[in-house]
Nucleic acid binder design. Structure first.
Length: 494
RNA sequence: GCAGCCGUAGCUCAGUUGUUGGUCUAGAGCGCCUGACUGUGGAUCAGGAGGUCAUGGGUUCGACCCCCAUCGGCUGUACCA
């Protein structure tokens, strides 16, 4: 035996996962459904590399000659800084800039792994899938409204009904209007967010976690959480905070009503007015095609990722709660988010290219659906296991297997030497629904035995006498060899 | 990054407790393997395999238990383009 200290430990990077069949099939089902919805709107699939130059991703720090934290980066043979992509949007901007001849609007969707070198947590990984949809080169609010509609349709295709999800929409221009109204310089001369504006937006973004009072503390001097940690605030005065509080507390029965309330608050600022107009246009489209206020709602507390959004922002939540291991009621985080980013391509081309889109957190949504019992996938693809208890009969088993496969039935043949008991247990462990048993008895009578393991499992609770149970075998049938395929098809069907 | 809690079998954990470190060559449940059942999974019963008590050092006659360090995990918080 090797000394155990000389063995290599099969360890794995934290925040990375192996995906087994059950989860793989569930993800494939989810992705297929959503992609079909995307295509129904005329979006087309593309793919881009996993690696990009760090400066293209916008993450190069020239003064340090290194990449920003939070991304996986390294140098290649040419000593160039490159990195694994942390989202799909940066690559889309690069793509649009690299192929200016692409007819606009350019409407694409993309499924891909992205990587972030951050602290992993509950349903937070360092490698995960995103499934993005974007329209590039269309400034109309109809494109933004369409994104909301796509989100609703995608969730519908996964079995969610109205009332189980909510697309929350706000607009960065409104937030800027509120800050302006409160006398906060949120934008500098180039239109970028200032430090104080950034801190204020971060505070607002935390509303769902720390509550209104927590947000107010963060807007003012700062906040101490229950662990005793202190977070420095934005240092706003109470008059300024009241403006923001008024804004956050807007509640309206409808999107239109929300815009009215908003108008009273920030309609007097140019940027705020613009933001309200944009929301009204989105409402117009959505209302015209029947997306109700319970599906898409205007919500002042939505902020989204801090830098590149320039207009409407979206965030989708599941309104169904779930219960954690302690029995506490909890809610899933945002599963489908995005917004308008008219400035992203400007970095490459020198002029603005309007763009809007959204991204599904595939793994997070999958996790939620698993929690809710909305996805149930088998552990294996085989529907039938042909047991082999007599090696002399192997040619016959092979024939059975190929007949079933030619009929389109996923079939596995047990090839190892093992007792029937072990083989049936194997089928049971992998959730294979049917087992075929053929021994000398069956061969001499030109029959096959087909055992329904799912049905057997159900009936097992009624077992009283084992011998009796074994003699009667209620979950299996013996049929003519010729009737194999039709019987299997019939048994799989119900 | 900061703070708190934790690390004993494949998994979930017991054992360490305010007068104490010796009973531990360390247990349970689940899972796994074998058999009762020479051709039948899930029930029942019997048996079996599986642990350098995270790692390294220290205190001690003696450490799973006390002290220090390291590593790993969980939770909260910060950051998250």
């Amino acid at each position: 035996m090797e000394n155990s200290t000389s063995l290599c430990s099969p360890r794995m990077l934290k925040g990375f996962r192996d995906t087994f069949t059950q989860e793989y099939l569930a993800r494939r089902w989810l992705v297929n459904n959503v992609q079909k919805v995307y295509e129904r709107y005329g979006f087309a699939p593309i793919e881009t590399p996993a690696l990009e130059y760090v400066d293209v991703l916008g993450k190069y720090l020239p003064e340090c000659d290194t990449a920003e934290e939070g991304i996986f980066s390294f140098r290649d043979l040419d000593r160039e800084w490159i990195a694994l992509r942390y989202d799909l949007t940066a690559a889309l901007a690069r793509l649009v800039a690299l192929y200016p001849e692409l007819p606009k609007p350019f409407r694409r969707y993309q499924l891909g792994l992205v990587w972030r070198d951050e602290k992993p947590g509950l349903a937070r990984f360092r490698e995960f899938y995103q499934l993005d949809i974007d329209t590039v080169g269309c400034a109309s609010m109809q494109a933004d409204a369409e994104v909301c509609a796509v989100i609703c349709d995608a969730l519908t295709s996964l079995g969610f009904v109205v009332g189980e999800y909510q697309v929350k929409v706000s607009n960065r221009k409104i937030l800027n209007g509120v800050l302006e109204k409160a006398g906060i310089d949120s934008l500098d001369s180039k239109g970028n967010l200032t430090e104080i504006g950034l801190t204020a937006l971060r505070a607002i973004d935390k509303l769902d976690r720390i509550g209104l009072r927590g947000v107010m503390e963060l807007l003012g001097p700062g906040r101490k959480d229950e662990s005793g940690d202190f977070t420095k605030g934005a240092g706003l005065n109470s008059d300024q905070i009241i403006w923001i509080e008024k804004f956050l507390q807007i509640q309206a029965k409808s999107r239109e009503q929300f815009c009215k309330e908003l108008d009273a608050l920030v309609g007097s600022t140019v940027i705020g007015k613009q933001g309200i107009d944009e929301l009204l246009q989105i409402d117009q489209f959505l209302s015209a095609v029947g997306y109700t206020n319970s599906q898409v709602v205007f919500d002042p507390t939505i902020v989204r990722g801090l830098s590149y959004y320039t207009g409407p922002v979206f965030e989708t939540v599941l309104t169904i709660p779930y219960h954690d291991e302690h029995g506490n009621e909890r809610h899933f985080g945002s599963i489908f988010s995005g917004g308008r980013y008219d400035g992203l391509v400007e970095r490459f081309l020198g002029y603005k290219v309007p763009a809007t889109g959204a991204s599904i957190g595939v793994d997070r949504l999958l996790e939620a659906m698993k929690c809710l019992g909305r996805i149930n996938m088998p552990k294996a693809t085989a529907q039938v296991l042909i047991t082999s208890m007599d090696s002399q009969l192997m040619p016959e088993y092979q024939k059975l297997a190929f007949e079933l496969r030619r009929a389109g039935i996923c079939t596995e043949l047990f090839m190892e030497k093992a007792g029937l008991k072990k083989q049936l247990k194997y089928a049971d462990q992998w959730d294979i629904p049917l087992a075929i048993i053929v021994g000398s008895n069956e061969v001499s009578q030109h029959k096959v035995t087909i055992k329904d393991l799912r049905k057997g499992r159900e009936l097992a609770s009624e077992i009283k006498d084992r011998d009796e149970w074994r003699r009667s075998q209620p979950a299996q049938v013996i049929v003519d060899r010729e009737a194999l395929i039709s019987t299997v098809q019939q048994m799989l069907a119900n």
